[in-house]
Simulated scan of single mutants.
Amino acid sequence: IFIATTRKRSDDPNKVFDGERSATLNYARVNVTVPPVHETGQIERRSRGKSDDPTKYFMASELVGYDTQPKFSSALNADIAARGGRVMVFVHGYNTGFDDAVYRLTQIVHDSGYPGTPVLFSWASGAKTTDYVYDKESASAARDQLEVTLRMLAQTGARRIDIVAHSMGTWVTMETLRQLAITGDRDLGGKLGDVVLASPDIDVDVFKSQMRRYGKPDKPFILLLSDDDRALRLSGLIAGSRPRVGDYKDAADLATYGVTVVDLSGAKG
């Protein structure tokens, strides 16, 4: 897993990056193993008091940090070339710690059989349910750095860049795509592939405004809805009666903006 993050490096020796914001991007790579007992859709994590056991739990190893973007880009480019030129960028959501984001991307790549290079864009979530406002501000502060990351990927040997974003991560993603559209490079020089927005934590009117500014995409964005998303339920409570995109099921309306809706409510795995 390659990592570009707006989190600060942690002073805690048991952590790599914490929930504090960094003014600049930090780069790293980590290897993660998936246990043979893994069940689709799950993340088997070691509970407190249990010993490390790669046959039972997701395990991270061989963490490598990069002190400059060129060094990171060089390592990334080599991996992209070895995997056929396809990249998946994952932008996590609200209330997500760094380790949680790494393991979630690992699970997505493993379960989907994604053949390309996985890249985690991790913004500075406080990883607490009470930090919703902090997380929203952190997400907003990360927009420019996600743009930097996507442009960097477009300058590598990548032939296709897919984006998967969840919850509040969809806000960061849509704002960044909006910025790219304003600069006249909305599809990253033709390299933008699938854009998947899972349970978007965005006001419906704001989302429509973002899509109008972006323009109808050449390939429809995929919007995944689920009644089981806890983060979205909390967002709904904070937002009051204002609908969120993740709750909005007027597929015909969203289709006019170039969005395909897939309702996963009740689906397992």
Rank of each mutant, 00 (worst) to 15 (best):
119 V>E: 00
202 I>L: 15
13 P>T: 07
225 L>Y: 04
137 E>T: 11
177 L>S: 02
38 H>V: 06
115 P>C: 05
65 G>C: 06
250 D>P: 10
112 S>W: 08
230 R>P: 04
10 S>L: 12
205 D>A: 13
220 P>I: 04
59 M>Y: 07
118 P>Q: 11
36 P>A: 14
214 Y>H: 12
229 D>L: 07
104 R>C: 10
235 S>K: 08
243 P>Y: 04
30 V>P: 06
36 P>E: 02
47 S>L: 14
6 T>C: 12
99 D>C: 03
206 V>K: 13
154 A>M: 03
236 G>K: 05
138 S>M: 11
10 S>V: 11
58 F>T: 05
209 S>M: 03
66 Y>N: 06
125 S>R: 08
142 A>M: 10
69 Q>H: 06
154 A>G: 10
90 F>H: 01
190 G>N: 03
193 G>A: 04
250 D>A: 12
5 T>A: 01
205 D>H: 06
87 V>D: 02
85 G>I: 11
195 V>H: 07
268 K>G: 09
26 N>M: 02
203 D>H: 13
190 G>R: 02
239 A>S: 14
235 S>T: 08
65 G>Q: 13
221 F>M: 13
91 V>E: 07
77 N>G: 10
78 A>D: 15
6 T>G: 06
264 L>D: 01
13 P>E: 10
67 D>C: 00
57 Y>Q: 02
179 Q>N: 13
48 R>V: 13
